Every structure is written in C-alpha cells, then in structure tokens.
Simulated scan of single mutants.
Amino acid sequence: MMAAVAAGVMLSGTSLRAEEVLKAVSAFPLPMVLSQDFLEFVTDVNEKGEGIVKIQLMGGPEVMPSAQQIDAVKRGIIDIQYGPATYHLGSAPEIDAFVGATVSPEEARENGGFELMQTILQDRLGVRMLSMAQAGLEFYVWTVDKPKIKEDGSVDLNGMRLRSQPIYQSFFEGMGAVPVSVGVPDVYTGLERGTFDGIGWPIAGVTDFSWDKYLKYRIDPGFFNSDLIIVINPESYADLSGEARAVIDQAALEYERDSRQRLAELTAETDKKVRDAGIEVITLEGSTATDYLDGAFGSAWARLKASDSTHYDELRAAFYPSDAE
C-alpha cells in the first residue's frame, strides 16, 4: 500500500510542485502603451502556466528606477525585466546591434544572432535574454517649432535641444543638436517649461502623456529598430521546472511575433490620430532621406566598432546583413 502511494507521488511530482512565482518590472510607467503591451506577455504566461508558473508584475520605475532594474535582475532581487537594452550601453556596447538591426527576431534566431546576443548579455550584464520585443519600432524626431529646411531639402537641427537617450545621442550630435537627458516621467514638464525643443520617440506612445500638446512637427522617415528586450535572472530561469521553462520560452517566442503586429497596428492608429490633430509631418525624400537614415544606422554601428568589441563582425553580419563588412 505505502509503495503504491510513493509511486503515485513520484509519478505526479509535477502536479504536486507549487506554482512558481516570478517578480517582474517594466522600465516604463505602467500606463504607457509599451508597458501595457508587456502586460500581454505577463498575461500569456499566467494563462498558459496556470498552476505551473506565474509572473507578478510589480510596477514600473516608481517601484525601482529604470537604470537600476537590470542590476536588480542580476542580483536576483527581481526575476524578470522589460525595457530598453540601450540603457546599459556602457556595460554592453554590443547592444547597439539591436539599434542598427535590419532583421526580424525570427531571422536573428535563425542566423545565430539571437543566441550570440544572449551569450553577450549574460556575460556582460548577468541576465538571460528571453525575447526581442516590439521589432520594427522606429524612432522619430518631434519638435515644438518647425525646424529649418536647408536648400538641399534636409532638416537643420543645429543647436536644437532634443530630449535624448543613449540609443540616438550620437545621431543627434552628428546633426548638430544638443542632447538633453531627461527621464520619461519628466518629459511633459520639460516640454511645458521649454527645457528642450523636441524629443526622439516612436509614433506609438507619443500621446500617452499628452506630449503631443506641445509637439507640432515630426520628421520622417523613422530610424533605428527596437532595443526593447525581456530578460530574466539566469538562476531563476535554471531553477524553474522544465514545464515552467517551456511555458516561459514559448510565450517569449510568441511575444516577438505578436508584439510586432500589435505595434504596427497601434502605430498606424496613432499616426492617423496625431495627423488629424494637426501634427505637421516633414517628409525627407530621395538622397536626403537616404543620407538621414545612413547617418542614424551608421552612428550605431560606428559606436559599436569604436568600442573594439570582438563581436563586431559577427553581430553586423547577423543583424545588418544588407551591408555587412
């Protein structure tokens, strides 16, 4: 009788294991559209992993400053984090490959780029990458006043103060603009007080905190690619049951595809909304647009090359195959 009970316990070990709970944070305030999209990943894991694994979203930067979140994941204080990888360029210059990417996450997984970056981030930051989020997320320059247009049709941003972040600081500097470092929660106040003349930001999310009340012009085309990723503490991941890891991995894979589709739909909706509200779009064309984009993507790869990373050639071939050196 006891032997039969013991055998039953052994066979049902998975069901007897308590639901594993992982704590997560977002680098952005939860009301922002990007954090709301991350919530789709959290919900998917919790539904697929009911009784197996659960993610508890603790909050955004009000819970823990964005710049400190990756270190908290490394130390095991937090299990999962979502946000811009470029906040940590100083520790992992290879992150610029995300910014300068012209491939989809699926292509990066197929050509070895995803696995390479996964290894780099674990070595450099002590975290395991789960997913490349919101692929296709392009950035734009938005301004309060109409920028000057040069004779060749390019925009003159010389001397303009633009709210910036590491992802496009060197690009702005290359155009003569003055980057201003301001946290997302303080952007509205900065625009209200005239602390800066414009910002760099995607179309999706620009209306979340009413920044469009002050921003009246947008320069097209968009540039760069998403630097948003989901990471997990390596020990937290290893300690999960095989069933729980399978749930997390599958949800992360599906999130790459689904977040890209949701982003495209939201971008189209928001673009129409801001145009209808009176935003004037200044569209660069022909060689002027090409030079503008070359300057953007080139700044990311030039910065990575200047870092003397031994992974430069591999990363460029994997993430920027259209012009690999």
Rank of each mutant, 00 (worst) to 15 (best):
D37M: 15
S66D: 08
T43R: 13
D123G: 06
S15H: 08
L315C: 08
E50K: 15
K272M: 13
D71I: 12
D79N: 11
G183S: 10
L293Y: 11
L30E: 10
Y292R: 06
A7N: 09
A27R: 09
R161M: 08
P61T: 06
E138G: 07
F223R: 00
A97C: 09
Y82A: 09
T310C: 01
Y214R: 12
K48E: 13
A252R: 01
V274I: 14
S259T: 05
V206M: 12
E19H: 07
V73L: 09
P147A: 04
A7E: 08
I95M: 14
F28R: 15
G112F: 11
R109L: 03
A318C: 09
E106D: 11
I248N: 04
E115R: 14
G286L: 07
K48S: 14
R262A: 13
D186C: 02
T43M: 10
L22V: 04
W211L: 14
S226H: 08
Q69F: 11
V247I: 12
H311D: 11
Q250S: 13
S307T: 00
V127M: 03
Q122E: 15
D258C: 06
E192W: 11
I230V: 10
Y214H: 13
D44H: 15
A6P: 00
E269N: 13
S307Q: 02
D313I: 06
G174A: 09
S91L: 08
Y312F: 15
D276W: 09
K273N: 05
F114S: 00
A302P: 00
F209G: 00
E254T: 07
L89S: 07
I149F: 13
I279D: 04
M10K: 04
S104G: 04
R275W: 03
S170P: 01
R193E: 11
